[in-house]
Design a protein around this nucleic acid. Structure first.
Length: 437
RNA sequence: GCGACCGUAGCUCAGUCGGUUAGAGCACCAGAUUGUGGAUCUGGGUGUCGCGGGUUCGAUCCCCGUCGGUCGCCCCA
């Protein structure tokens, strides 16, 4: 039993686990790059104020915060959005538009771990700054979908639920509610799926019981699952803001349809997202079987850059977490098995065989081929067994008989057959084999 | 922060109605093995029975506390 343990909720990545995580990171990064997003990085430790300013003080209990040796109140970052807003805000005038940034990093929260949640977790964050139109929202949702389909997930596995805080605000205003009531109702709407009627308790405590007719309208609006339903519900209120918003919706959905993404996206006004800083379209990706928590979430936060002291810069973004994503890929059998496998395993006979193999090993490695060989000589049976268990596709055999004849055996570990190749042709033969030539 | 359940080897677990030196399978290590496939055989236990205290002649077992884990609540970035 080890004397020291890692801190609760903090994850250690043994090679196999890290290979799985790297698999996620690699495809996320590749996908974000293909969408023209550029990668940046940011501090892991931030001043407490950065999050207090935005989220209110009660969130502090969820923050991994402490006082540093200089007496500063600091936080292990719980999310990237405020940091990104600060960075972009500071140089907004110098940055080429559109600003499409992504980052892959680790985040922290001080909380009891549970399924799909740890105290440390990694996320892909992707954001677009400086574009107020639905073009940015389309781009982000398209990236989100491809960040999931890149792993082999399909519309059978997940869906993106799309909603709109602006639409909710405009609708509730049209029903005659003031700003404070609207804000309280958005919280209730966010909780309604989980809590049902109890979601309205906080509102009732604050403003008294919700009028039954009003509540009926809100509950009906919350069930909406399509644009035509939105249009029908809003007919009595037709006018400037609402009409323009419906036009935004149409352009958003038309754009997604033209990208052939309609099958992944479902209108669902029951989603509004808990965080106060969201302003317009919001979306969440869910496992369709529904036994996991959200895979990803995001939306528009047009006011945040300014609130954090920057210019008035519209923005939208999303994040995908590695924990739920990893669970889903495991469940669907989409996590590759031999991620750490070498391309080639060498087996050799004695010191002479070892030395004969070394030049080829060096040449192949220099060419980017992953080559493994036993550091200490083992019986051939064991060497080949180890080669097979490693997941390598090819074994190179430097035996005494072969070397005496100036050849090396290439053994196809999958097909179980082998052929001899003149020693000087080994690197070329290996490359041909690996490229399928 | 709250609640429920759990804690014996790297993993899955057995065990002791409280009794001497704590077990199995898998995994791992070494050898049989000086040339060919997940095999077989031999050898190896790799352990502070989570930790601390209490009860007891004696505690891995019973009691209390604590730490850790799992799941849920709160919250969800």
């Amino acid at each position: 039993m080890p004397l020291f343990q890692s801190l609760p909720g903090f994850r250690e990545f043994y090679p196999e686990a890290l290979a799985r995580r790297n698999h996620l990171f690699r495809l996320w990064r590749q996908t974000a790059l293909t969408f023209g997003f550029v990668e940046y990085d940011a501090p892991v430790l931030e001043p407490l104020e950065l999050y207090k300013a935005k989220s209110g003080e009660e969130i502090e209990q969820q923050l991994f915060s402490f006082t540093d040796k200089g007496g500063r109140e600091v936080v292990l970052r719980p999310e990237l959005t405020p940091t990104a807003c600060r960075m972009v805000g500071a140089k907004a005038n110098a940055l080429k538009r559109p600003i499409k940034w992504f980052n892959i990093g680790e985040f922290y929260r001080y909380e009891r771990a549970q399924k799909g949640r740890e105290r440390s977790f990694s996320q892909l964050n992707a954001d677009i700054f400086g574009e107020a139109g639905v073009e940015a929202d389309i781009e982000l949702i398209a990236l989100l979908v491809q960040c999931l389909t890149a792993f082999g997930l399909t519309e059978q596995d997940f869906q993106v639920r799309l909603s709109d805080r602006d639409l909710w605000c405009y609708y509730l205003e049209a029903l005659g509610l003031d700003e404070a009531r609207v804000r309280a109702l958005l919280v209730a709407i966010d909780k309604h799926e989980r809590l049902g009627d109890a979601a309205f308790k906080n509102y009732a405590d604050q403003f008294g019981p919700l009028d039954a007719v009003l509540k009926g309208k809100i509950l009906a609006f919350l069930q909406i699952k399509s644009l035509p339903q939105i249009e029908t519900a809003l007919k009595p209120f037709s006018g400037g803001k609402l009409d323009a918003r419906i036009a935004d919706w149409r352009r958003l959905l038309d754009g997604l349809a033209a990208m052939n993404l309609a099958r992944f996206v479902e209108v669902d006004l029951g989603v509004v997202r808990g965080l106060a800083y969201y302003t317009g379209f919001v979306f969440e990706a869910f496992d369709r079987k529904g036994d996991l928590r959200a895979l990803a979430g995001g939306g528009r936060y047009n006011d945040l850059v300014k609130k954090l002291g920057g210019p008035d810069l519209p923005a939208a973004g999303f994040a995908i977490g590695d924990v739920t994503m990893g669970l889903l890929l495991e469940q669907r059998g989409l996590m590759p098995a031999f991620i750490n496998a070498p391309d080639v395993c060498v087996a050799y006979d004695g010191e002479a065989g070892r030395l004969a193999a070394f030049p080829d090993i060096q040449t192949l490695r220099a060419a980017g081929v992953r080559v493994e060989y036993p550091l200490k000589e083992l019986a051939f049976g064991k060497q080949l067994k180890a080669a097979l268990e490693s997941g390598a596709k090819l074994a190179l055999i430097y035996g005494g008989d072969e070397l005496a004849r100036g050849v090396v055996k290439l053994r196809d570990l999958t097909e179980r057959h082998e052929r001899e190749v003149p020693r000087e042709q080994v690197p070329a033969a290996v490359r041909d084999f690996l490229t399928g030539a």
